[in-house]
Amino acid sequence: METTRFDGIDGFSEICIALGLEEYEKTNYSSSPPKILQIVAYLLEKSIQKNERLLRVKSRIEVEIITIFHGSKAPAMSMKRYVERIFKYSNCSTSCYVFAYIYIERFLQKRASFYLTSLTVHRLLITSVMLAAKFLDDATESNAYYAEVGGVSTEEMNELEMAFLFSLEFSLLVTAEDFAHYCQYLEVKVAGEIIGLRN
């Protein structure tokens, strides 16, 4: 992406480097995964906790509609470990995780009655990362490969992809400005919140 598009964002290059978006070396994975993974995992986990508290109250009044994105049970793997697994095996660029987060937000805005929970988050994440890689990267893995990484069948992966695309009305474009502002939000606000929780 051309840096001139981000002139309005102070320190955009530094934000990208802090998130691990600048030519992050796969060989560095064992020592320190890029910060974007931790941030995405944190935001998804936070949303899950909020929604599951809400659903415990709402379940007395209404029944949640089950979709293809609902697993029969929540995977034992934590959100952080799942994000890191996708990163380790998918070979997609780190910018895909910013795109994937944007796609999940768009998906949730289009489907107001859908809740991000421990039963839905893993399928949404693997689908959004796969679509981000297809849209953003020059070379990507097959649906069958992503299915294996994500812990679903190839048939399910294909169905998840189509359901996700139709929900987004096939709108996968993220403008340079939106990308820059999301990066700034993720690095400045969310990363600061995570550090605050540790102290």
Rank of each mutant, 00 (worst) to 15 (best):
S90L: 08
F87C: 03
E84Q: 12
E105V: 08
Y29L: 13
L43W: 00
Y29C: 11
F87Y: 12
R85Y: 01
I65F: 04
P34F: 04
S90I: 10
Y24A: 01
F12H: 14
Y29I: 11
T94M: 07
R85L: 15
K73L: 10
S128F: 02
R53K: 13
S93C: 02
A144Q: 11
Q109W: 02
A139T: 14
H70A: 05
I104V: 12
S13M: 12
A76N: 05
I66C: 00
M77L: 15
G11V: 02
E141P: 00
F114K: 08
I39S: 01
F135N: 05
A139C: 12
S142R: 04
V129H: 06
Y101I: 02
S13V: 08
N143T: 06
A139W: 04
N91R: 14
F114H: 10
H122K: 11
S90Q: 10
L136K: 14
L55I: 13
N28P: 02
A74W: 06
V83W: 06
I39L: 08
M79E: 10
R106L: 07
S13R: 10
L55Y: 05
S13Y: 14
L119S: 11
R85V: 12
S31R: 14
L21R: 06
R111N: 14
S31K: 15
E45N: 12
E84T: 04
T140Y: 03
